[in-house]
Amino acid sequence: MEVITNTQDNVTTAQLIGRLDTPASQEISGDFESLIKLADGTVILDCSQLEYISSSGLRLFLSLRKAAASKGGKVIVKAINNDIRSVFMMTGFLNLFEIQN
């Protein structure tokens, strides 16, 4: 699992590459801590190369959303595949994020 982050003008794009299962969630928790520090701006989670998300991955997304809500920022989830979209729907997470295609 790899996270490539790029910040420009208060907009941070984090490209998530691979499978976000439980071990991968632990592996990239530091990357999400860094994103939380930037959550007063806009954070775009580019999921175009994210193949899978587990509950642990959802928790990471949720912690970022909470931080953004408290800091007045915004999280955009971009380009999720249909399997991940189904996971968001089945867990009631679909309307918690701004999802862009």
Partner: peptide, 13 residues
């Protein structure tokens, strides 16, 4: 699935 987190909007949804 083994999903063990849900949001409280799952019920109304």
């Amino acid at each position: 699935t083994d999903l063990d987190i849900i949001s409280s909007s799952i019920g109304p949804q």
